[in-house]
């Protein structure tokens, strides 16, 4: 940053500090206190300090939900980034006009509501309006069938949701990469594939990790897709958090689960920053 020192008055900082302090920090503090509050069945909760809600989470049922959530999100993140990495590299090599148009499409897909994505995909994978029809028409299937709800549909939805994010995280570092490095490798006789795996990919280790974690964290918070595209056994932690908060009126338990999800998220983000710093230091 090459900003001139003190171009703005100091009191300016008070506006965002107050706004975010009151409406972002305080809610988290309240959530933390609710997670250790005592649940009053049928009502809300009363202040107190007990770890009952956290202990309840340690049961086999909720343990398996956590494992399911993490597995599904990890799979989605891996698929997304594997598809997004070459996409971004090719994209960054195109002219400005083409890049702009592709970015417009990506941003439009990124801004789509989870509801709309769920609705679109369930339509696309449905019996009456989707690929089933196409496959039947082509003679691959005897009669049209639905592909949703299923794990396949859920993963497709999560990848659809995460893909634009993965590309947009990879885009700045990829586009800053000196194209001459790849050219140098090519001049020295490396094949395009070898250049890709030997030069491009190692240079971008930190951003690739960053994209993996971002998509992972993002899909961990997915709430609607598991209900629209998946079966009940695919319900993720987010679905259960909302279920507990809204339908079971168990705010302390919902808050405890959210706090645990927050801890897992922060640990992952911290780990990525650490790994990224290592990769940066070695270059």
């Amino acid at each position: 940053m090459s900003a001139p020192q003190k171009a703005t008055p100091g009191w300016l900082a008070a506006i965002p500090a107050l706004a975010l302090g009151i409406f972002f920090i305080v809610p988290f503090a309240i959530m933390l206190s609710v997670s250790v509050a005592h649940r009053v069945p049928g009502g809300f909760f009363e202040p107190g300090f007990e770890l009952a809600s956290y202990i309840r989470f340690l049961s086999a049922f909720f343990g398996s939900i956590l494992v399911t959530s993490i597995t599904i999100s990890a799979a989605a993140a891996a698929i997304c980034v594997t598809l997004a990495f070459p996409f971004t590299v090719f994209l960054a090599g195109m002219g400005r006009r083409a890049q702009t148009w592709i970015l417009v499409i990506l941003l439009s897909v990124l801004s789509l509501s989870e509801v709309i994505i769920g609705f679109s995909l369930s339509t696309l994978l449905s019996k009456t309006a989707g690929v089933g029809n196409l496959l039947a028409w082509l003679g691959i299937l005897e009669t049209s069938r639905a592909f949703t709800p299923s794990l396949f549909a859920l993963l497709t939805g999560m990848c659809y949701l995460g893909f634009p994010y993965a590309v947009l995280v990879l885009y700045p570092p990829v586009s800053r990469l000196d194209p001459e490095l790849g050219e140098a490798a090519r001049t020295m006789g490396a094949s395009p594939l070898r250049t890709f795996f030997g030069v491009t990919l190692p240079l971008l280790r930190a951003p690739v990790l960053g994209a993996l974690v971002l998509v992972f964290v993002f899909t961990l918070g997915v709430y609607l897709l598991p209900q629209v595209l998946g079966r009940p056994q695919h319900w993720t932690l987010s679905v259960h958090i909302t279920d507990q908060a809204i339908f079971q009126s168990n705010l302390p338990f919902a808050a405890a689960m959210a706090v645990l999800l927050l801890v897992v998220t922060l640990m992952l983000v911290g780990l990525t920053l650490l790994l990224g710093r290592d990769a940066g230091a070695r270059q």
């Binding site: 972002f24 809610p27 988290f28 309240i30 959530m31 964290v217 993002f218 961990l220 918070g221 709430y223 987010s238 958090i241 909302t242 908060a245 919902a254 808050a255 959210a258 999800l261 927050l262 998220t265």
Partner: peptide, 8 residues
């Protein structure tokens, strides 16, 4: 994950 902020 937005669900965390949402609950907050």
């Amino acid at each position: 994950p937005p669900v965390i902020s949402a609950l907050g």
